[in-house]
């Protein structure tokens, strides 16, 4: 990191000065760019490649109050073999669960290569003390989580208390140890694209390994323009610091078409370097089956039916 960026977080004033000195985002222009990229037509071999890439980037997620060990085990089985009839289907990147179910997921995925991610820090609202958030994180890490998906304190962010957000991210990052930290901005609550850009930089400055759009509990969740802006942020952050941060849109990505639009955004914004599960994830649950159905259509030449794909 360049010296100038080390100093950025040294005080409220420098942090605010830096974040508010970032170039603005014109909403209409950003929407148009995302919409234009969404018209890319991905066909045949490109589509096949994109579908497998998308499957390998899925963070298969269940974040319900009604989640049970049985539900998590079933999802883990699906994560390892998304289509039991076709071994050429790649496994997904990770499963994403609440902290108390991490141990079940770790057991179910042992040796599979599928990572276990856990939400933490008083997910989804983030409304608790730093101590509780750190403890929440430590619980998940201790249970074997490879990745922590934390939420930022949107209240503090919108109140302009950037330093608090920064310190919380840094503290959680410290609590993560070897686990990777994804920082959820909950862009649907940040309201403006300028805020999305600032929150992205704030999270990256504080040590995020990934920046993630949404909890999935707030609408709108991962819109294309928001993902575009976050991709621009990680691109610019690497240019500035040399450090690569990943991006994870989550929530609202349900179809293969949605997934491919995201991959097009990655390719034409951050670049090919980000087209790997280490740097780009799709937080989703129902998306996976649509990817599988489209994949089968490409290989068989017939349109697929949902009865032929598992519901776990």
């Amino acid at each position: 990191m360049t010296t100038s960026l080390v100093d950025v977080a040294s005080s409220d004033a420098t942090l605010r000065g830096f974040l508010h000195g970032l170039p603005g985002v014109d909403r209409v222009g950003a929407d148009q760019r995302a919409a234009a990229l969404a018209t890319r037509s991905i066909k045949t071999a490109a589509k096949a490649h994109a579908i497998d890439l998308a499957i390998s980037m899925v963070d298969l997620t269940t974040l319900e109050g009604a989640d049970t060990p049985g539900k998590v085990r079933a999802m883990c089985a699906k994560a390892v073999h998304p289509d039991p009839t076709d071994p050429s289907v790649p496994r997904v990147a990770a499963v994403c669960v609440y902290p108390d179910l991490v141990a079940d997921a770790v057991r179910a995925l042992s040796g599979s290569g599928v990572k276990v991610a856990s939400v933490a820090t008083a997910f989804p609202s983030g409304r608790s003390s730093l101590e509780v958030k750190v403890a929440d994180t430590a619980l998940a890490v201790a249970a074997g989580a490879d990745e922590i998906d934390m939420v930022i304190d949107r209240g503090a962010f919108l109140a302009g208390d950037y330093r608090t957000v920064y310190e919380q991210v840094a503290a959680v990052k410290a609590a993560c140890g070897a686990a990777h930290l994804k920082v959820i901005l909950e862009t649907g609550e940040l309201a403006t694209y300028d805020n999305v850009r600032r929150a992205s930089w704030l999270a990256m400055l504080a040590g995020a390994d990934f920046i993630k759009t949404s909890t999935g509990k707030v609408s709108p969740a991962a819109t294309l323009p928001v993902t575009l802006i976050m991709l621009e942020a990680v691109r610019d952050f690497r240019e500035r610091t040399g450090r690569v941060v990943g991006v994870k849109p989550a929530g609202g990505i349900r179809t293969t078409k949605d997934a491919i639009k995201n991959l097009v955004l990655v390719k034409e914004t951050a670049g090919e370097d980000w087209l790997t599960p280490d740097r780009f994830r799709l937080g989703a649950s129902s998306l996976l089956n649509d990817l599988l159905m489209q994949r089968q259509k490409l290989t068989s030449g017939r349109y697929a039916g949902p009865d032929y794909f598992t519901v776990d």
């Binding site: 170039p23 985002v25 222009g29 148009q32």
Partner: peptide, 9 residues
């Protein structure tokens, strides 16, 4: 002070 990404577009 332009919104540089949109300006480039």
């Amino acid at each position: 002070d332009a919104a540089v990404d949109q300006a480039v577009e």
